[in-house]
Design a binder for these strands. Structure first.
Lengths: 130, 130
DNA sequence: TTCCTTGCAAATCGTTTGCATAATG
DNA sequence: CATTATGCAAACGATTTGCAAGGAA
């Protein structure tokens, strides 16, 4: 139960904190391997899961079947490009009223909501014109 | 390309239409097997994918990593119970303005959104009291 | 010295696919 | 007859896990 320090975990968290593109476990793995050539994919998964469990990072699921990870832990919305699959932040305030709205018409208790938007990202829009 | 009739596909669609609990492929398989003991999981997956592609059913992803299927094809919201994992409908009108809202603050083009609510379902709320 | 963390490999889970055969139009 | 659909089993990709060895408190 007691958490012990590990350089690998530090490195994973540090890498994530430098990115805004919500990398997958595999991307994290490929990058952290630059500093820790012997790190294993299992260790990356274990630490990402651990960090998400203790609330230091967020695991995000945007319908592509692959988990992405976000250093930002305050609730916000994401966008996923249907063309290139990239995941980005949406600069839209988190709407707690949506949760309340749903709670009002449901037998049970609603604690929150998860929303992602989809469409075509700026890059892919421009790519169409060439 | 031309679609041919198949009793298995009919059976899958018919089963789905009788359910409001958004079954997974495996649940569909186990049930359709009652009428078609030799049906294979592959056939179930193939037909669920086909039906979803031609818009006769909807594939829904509610963050548990397993695909659920819904005979209802008009956009609406779902709830997933964090205790028992059951998926149910939320009686809340689909809010197209959310898509527009996000589109207004994003460089690129947003086509839609996907939202699910989470919490504790009625059954699991009551189970706590016993 | 305790016990958490790692690397490695094998296992798991949901889903997809190749192939020969059966069914449909 | 041409072609789509099936059953079966093997393959797949993402993720998890068992285990012996290494590292932190």
């Amino acid at each position: 139960m007691a958490l012990k320090h590990s350089k690998q975990r530090d490195s994973i968290k540090e890498f994530l904190e430098g990115r805004k593109d919500h990398p997958t476990a595999d991307i994290v793995y490929m990058n952290v391997r630059k500093s820790f050539p012997n790190i294993s994919l299992g260790t990356v998964y274990r630490n990402l899961t651990l960090l998400a469990d203790i609330g230091e990072i967020t695991r995000i699921r945007v319908g592509d079947g692959i988990d992405h990870f976000d250093p930002v832990t305050t609730p916000h919305y994401h966008f996923i490009c249907q063309d290139c699959g990239s995941v980005m932040d949406i600069d839209l305030e988190y709407m707690t009223f949506l949760t309340k709205l749903a709670d009002g018409c449901f037998n049970g208790q609603i604690n929150g909501h998860s929303t992602y938007f989809y469409g075509k990202c700026e890059k892919c829009c421009k790519a169409l014109l060439s």
